[in-house]
Amino acid sequence: MAESKHQYAFFLGCIAPNRYPGCESAAIKTSAKVGIELLPLKGAGCCPAPGAFGSIDLNVFYALAARNLVLAEQMNMDITLICNGCYKSIWEVNHILKHNDELRDGVNEVLKEVDMEFKGTIDVWHLAELYYDPKICGVDKLAASVTRPLTGTKIAVHYGCHLMKPGKERHFGDTENPMWIDELVEALGAEAVQYRNKMQCCGAGGGVRGYDLTHSLDITNEKLINVTEVGADAITEVCPFCQLQYDRGQIEIQEKFGKTYGIPVLHFNELLGLAQGMSPQELALDLHGIDCKPFLEKIL
């Protein structure tokens, strides 16, 4: 019997396709296994990066984000994405323009120049929330798709910032001690460990990674201390920018602060890929800055 398929236009962003392509590949393959089909969104570009771009000119930020949204509107398909930063640009601008006539009109004035019009006809979803939603997939179905349970591993979940905050403008519930991504991780057979100050930022956002690297790394370092304190075998997140900050960041921290943690960093889709039997090669884990071997030894 054919699985009823949920189809989405897959917004890629920048860091996943251009630095951690394993996340992109994993997302497509693992989603297919639970009845979610990801289709390419032709011609999309940077979301644009909310911290870097929004800091300079919010008007351009709205317009570029709207351009990406219009591409999906032209496909008549909802967007799904795998990055918190992209979520802020794409979901939030979609939400704002749907409800603010003045801003929408302003954006459409500019989009007219490129023969585009934002109509507000589609919705935007983070892939993780689709996995969690029982109407689309749900924790049980996700667990059922697991062929290589990650038993015996302790994984620290980093929720990131732009997905869930500000809580009053999002629909993900409690922002102080959420557990839903922990539940997704446990569906894979791993133990989601709680650690101190789990909701703190990774430090990369707002352009700070580019503006003052050591400042951002000091924030990351605090998180690494908290995570290693509870004996986590890996960190997982749902944002490639957080991934970059934790992964490449550990190398930079070693260089600049002289601290070594060696804790593998895996995007949830990479984790899900491993749990569904994908190989480290299929996930391009060798591209990671921090060697994933210590984690892989526990599950392979």
Partner: peptide, 25 residues
């Protein structure tokens, strides 16, 4: 892109069975 593609990544993509460049700009 704010973080554009590079050749190391292109060959990695190819090995994964993805297009060398993503279906973006």
């Amino acid at each position: 892109h704010g973080v554009p593609n590079n050749d190391v990544n292109r060959s990695a993509r190819e090995k994964l069975g993805l297009s060398r460049d993503p279906p973006t700009t």
